[in-house]
Design a protein around this nucleic acid. Structure first.
Lengths: 338, 338
DNA sequence: TTGTATGCGTTATCAA
DNA sequence: TTGATAACGCATACAA
């Protein structure tokens, strides 16, 4: 079913049908009604490809996520959910591209095949080939996360550096002197994953400011790894009494390791972190954490992108969120472990 | 940048460029090289909309998921991940449509705007308007899940009825006489959610066959609800010693309720369920469960869909998986609670 | 081995 | 208020 067929049956020209639909030109009530009747009868909808070809835009945005094979964290899922939601509300569609490496066919298709009007890019590295690629392509895009040169692009990001520093200060205020930072997995950090490096920086700074003892470790993003990681830390650093972390997925395992070591949270050991609000609340015990508003961030990213699509010349905008730490059940006064 | 520009710069006709790209007609090595050089220099890629318009296919499939606002279960995420993965491997793209209700603009766009070559539909009800809509549209589609008339469509599904019956038999073999079925949330079941109804049927059947006492409850899909749900069950049914469940998201809460009631799993209480393998393994304690191969199911759904797109006249195919129950750490011999 | 011409379904310009 | 027609960029049937 195409617009010509509708026009024929309604006894008008194709352009009249088009204008009746878009309202970009006055059409008499009478013909408008007749056209609508035919459309309803035949269930006509404009062909998206033809419209995209003619208009030069697809009404679709691309969402580049980490390869689906590696499980997304709760925070990442929050971003995806809110991006999808906000996009649907704007009557746009989302094309999903699972792209991690550099030579990625899916990513290339999205960027260069003009399949989308703009892109939202997740899980950005300090040096990120995909950002370079998008910049040179001229396609509007917004990062959830930012590179080392954050001025060159629009983004929404979490201020991991400040937040982890806040966690350290909070723990220091409670009397903890020996702290560990549990980072995301080693490969990610080695590859220049921004949050990993910024968390380290914030940790180091706060540790120095307060004159504390700090140790930094990487940990794979799952409960099992969290458990072994904490077991090793407990064994190696007998004076350790608190942890700051950005590794959501490992926290459940850390709880287990503590329980098995006979340590009660927060009486014997404290944990503070940066995590999605919904998730921190539903954990058991609920995690004292800076509540990342993943839902809002995704929506804001979409907002920024829609603006850039409408006017690519608009100056870049940046949103760095640093939510306050919500005190829940995992931090308490320091107390020697033995 | 378009094919005409490439042709001009390479000193050949547009069709020669097209044929050089598709290989559907012999092109001399010399011109092929010259064309490729220009393409590399200018970074040309065919316009997806123009190609879709000409070819009548979009090289894109639609994935209809539950509204993103409501958090997806781990199993649903497994489906999404494997569908996205398998689609990318086939050099196709995925258009995401978060569609729950009936009058959904996103869903309508996907179905009727010819934006996709086919659709994968998740979270199907026994009576599902979206299935009706897809059937009448003629667009190829595959369900992850099935309606009450499963012959009319292609699908991949989990045999909840058999699996929950197996759970009951397993628990009965261990001596449990008073069992509860913890279903998904009440709204979903009331709306005719297939797995919910089929799990009930399997539960009732097995309970009757073994002459046991069974009670069925619905429970919202989160840990907090799981906790209160089990608290109530424990209070109301003092003889209850085991649970069968299809509600992944509630299990962590059930563990908590048991711990707080001073009951140890599996010594004092047993739980068996149907859950994504990865998730059951990583739970603590690991859940005795029928391991749903979410990764494989998504890939098979994509396979089926690609076949249907290639030949819409092909007979419908169905895949009902009933994986064996993996014995882990949550079921043991029955023992009176008091 | 290559070139020319046509049409896919829209929207928008020009003309009436 | 409406109609005829030219693009948008590509793939392909037809010619050479």
């Amino acid at each position: 079913m195409n617009i010509g067929e509708i026009a024929r049956r309604a006894g008008v020209s194709r352009s009249t049908v088009s204008y009746a639909l878009t309202g970009k030109r006055p059409v008499s009530e009478e013909t408008k009604r007749r056209i609508q009747a035919v459309i309803d009868e035949l269930g006509y909808r404009p062909n998206a490809a033809a419209r995209a070809l003619k208009e030069g835009r697809t009404r679709t945005i691309g969402l580049v996520i980490p390869p689906a094979s590696q499980r997304l964290t709760d925070m990442q899922l929050g971003f995806v959910a809110s991006v999808v939601d906000a996009t649907a509300r704007a009557d746009l569609d989302v094309l999903l591209s699972p792209s991690g490496g550099e030579h990625d066919r899916s990513f290339e298709r999205v960027v260069t095949g003009r399949r989308v009007d703009g892109v939202i890019l997740m899980e950005i590295r300090l040096e990120d080939d995909r950002v370079t690629r998008l910049l040179q392509s001229g396609l509007p895009f917004v990062g959830i996360g930012r590179t080392r040169q954050p001025e060159d692009m629009s983004w929404v990001d979490i201020d991991y550096e400040t937040l982890i520093a806040k966690c350290v200060h909070h723990l220091a205020d409670l009397g903890h002197r020996h702290l560990a930072l549990v980072n995301r997995n080693a490969e990610l950090v080695a590859a220049g994953y921004g949050p990993g490096h910024r968390a380290q920086a914030g940790f180091d700074r706060a540790i120095a400011e307060r004159g504390l003892h700090g140790v930094r470790v990487c940990c794979a993003d799952d409960a099992q790894a969290g458990q072994t990681c904490l077991q090793q830390l407990l064994a190696e650093y007998p004076e350790l009494t608190a942890i700051a972390t950005i590794n959501e997925a490992a926290v459940a395992g850390m709880y287990r390791a503590l329980t098995e070591a006979g340590l009660t949270v927060p009486r014997d050991f404290s944990i503070a972190g940066v995590a999605a609000q919904h998730w921190a609340e539903n954990l058991h015990p609920p995690l004292t954490a800076a509540d990342v508003p993943a839902d809002e961030m995704g929506a804001r990213a979409v907002e920024l992108l829609i603006q850039r699509i409408a006017d690519p010349a608009t100056p870049h905008r940046h949103l760095l969120v640093a939510p306050p730490i919500s005190l829940r059940s995992t931090t308490g006064p320091a107390r020697p472990r033995t």
